[in-house]
Design a protein around this nucleic acid. Structure first.
Lengths: 264, 264
DNA sequence: CGATTTGTTCTAATATTTGGAACGGCTTTC
DNA sequence: GAAAGCCGTTCCAAATATTAGAACAAATCG
């Protein structure tokens, strides 16, 4: 499974280290920042190297000192800035389709998500939330595993048998919720069903008590490049409601697919 | 003016080049991507180096090929992902204060922006828009010059005379709109006025026909770390409305400032 | 107050990046 | 239809930049 992830033939090791540091910083959730020594230990990079790398990243605003007199580092607003430029360069950029997504959200009073496939995960690129207290808690920019979500399973439908097998061999599987599909065999059957139905259902596979309905957006090659999902607590997601969601979603997804050159 | 921008003492040149490439890619606005040769020419980096760097960046999802068979590159969703992790690490993260900002937006039916100071520019970290056709067109993640906006002038208020002078010497000044302040002398007077008033007004200084009202959020050191602005077309921004905005904003900003430990 | 641990700086040894050249594929041009 | 040009990719040896480790002062901890 060579396409499982992109492995550069001639990696720039210095850059790779910097990106590892950036990734490590990203995992940090506090506002206190991370110290040079901690990074050095965690990634087995010499202190001086970490220091110089952070210094350079700081010059570009990709990291910042955690405070005026702090020696710890946080991700910087320059990175935020750069990240926000990404959607503008992609045809599927979410922001363009906010009206349609809002309409869906308003009609069903449930959270609407739009996600793209990237590096064998789903990246949420747009989210519209209803004004209801109880709601799903995904966030824009968040990554979700393919195997545990409705959107993700849509992307898995494009995998060949070998790719799917490779995926299950390389990924660490966690049972997020009651019905998470954790084996290759079960997923194979599930995907066959999804391909036949034309939609995917996450029936308490990612969050307990949460159901998510998703349909694919395909480009001119027929590849599923994105998808839209509607998710909510299972007691609100009745069979009738799901049927209505299916109708609405299929219209919107067909629209966007044809916009990308897809011929049904 | 040594603090004008951070210049690393021991730069990691390889990393700096990669970040330059990333920056160049960011400037691209099309969905077609940028070719290796173009980058090589624009930044005077050898083709092979650009190639290897992009390969490494691609492994981390920071860049992507523009299409299945394309040899051009775009910013990747991995960068989007990383960028969206930034606000979570900052106390001032906008997302936390959406309710307050929405209230402001609803009350005045104008765009509300929240921005932070970063690398001598303003970065918009949160934006709430009213459902009105005519509205300002800033975007989240966008950078704005300090000298031409209400939020920016708030940050300039913290500059010493030397720093302000250095700023005007190092920055390229463009007259964005009719009333853009383009000279050090005029800005000095303007800042004195702002410090006295406690708020900043952008009276058609950034976009013609647009007025923006902003107030500062300060941390425990008294430094202006962020600000909130309300902006709209000048004919809607009457004196009376501005007075009301001032009242509302001062309440919210005082709240957030005290949350950061500021004692008025 | 001593003992760690921190960030920072320096240096020499090393391993890395670098740019140029070469190759094949593709498009453009004559 | 041939040739010239430009593209991305690969390879190599020369040269440069990175590295690890030690040394230092400052801060933190017990």
């Amino acid at each position: 499974m060579e396409s499982f992830e992109h492995i550069p033939k001639y990696p720039v090791q210095t850059l790779a280290k910097a990106l590892d540091i950036l990734h490590y910083l990203k995992e940090n959730t506090s506002t206190e920042g991370v110290s040079i020594s901690e990074i050095s230990r965690a990634l087995s990079i010499g202190k001086s190297g970490v220091h110089r790398t952070l210094d350079t990243l700081m010059a570009y605003g990709f990291v910042e000192k955690a405070g005026a007199n702090s020696t710890s580092y946080l991700l910087g607003w320059g990175l935020f800035d750069a990240g926000n430029a990404v959607p503008k360069q992609h045809t599927l950029n979410g922001a363009n389709y906010i009206p349609q997504l809002e309409k869906l959200c308003n009609r069903f009073s449930e959270t609407v998500n739009m996600g793209v496939f990237n590096n064998y995960e789903t990246v949420i690129i747009c989210k519209i939330e209803p004004n209801i207290k109880l709601r799903t808690n995904t966030q824009v920019g968040e990554r979700e595993p393919l195997y545990a979500t409705a959107l993700g399973k849509l992307f898995l439908c494009d995998f060949t048998t070998e790719e799917l097998q490779g995926y299950f061999e390389n990924i660490e599987i966690s049972p997020f919720a009651a019905n998470t599909i954790t084996t290759y065999e079960k997923m194979k059957a599930e995907l066959a069903k999804i391909r036949h139905q034309g939609y995917a259902l996450d029936n308490e596979e990612y969050f307990d008590g949460m159901i998510c309905f998703a349909m694919p957006i395909k480009d001119f090659t027929g590849k599923t490049v994105s998808g839209i999902s509607v998710s909510g607590p299972s007691r609100r997601m009745t069979a009738e409601k799901l049927e209505n969601i299916k109708e609405s979603l299929s219209t919107v997804c067909a629209q966007l697919s044809s916009f990308l050159g897809y011929n049904a």
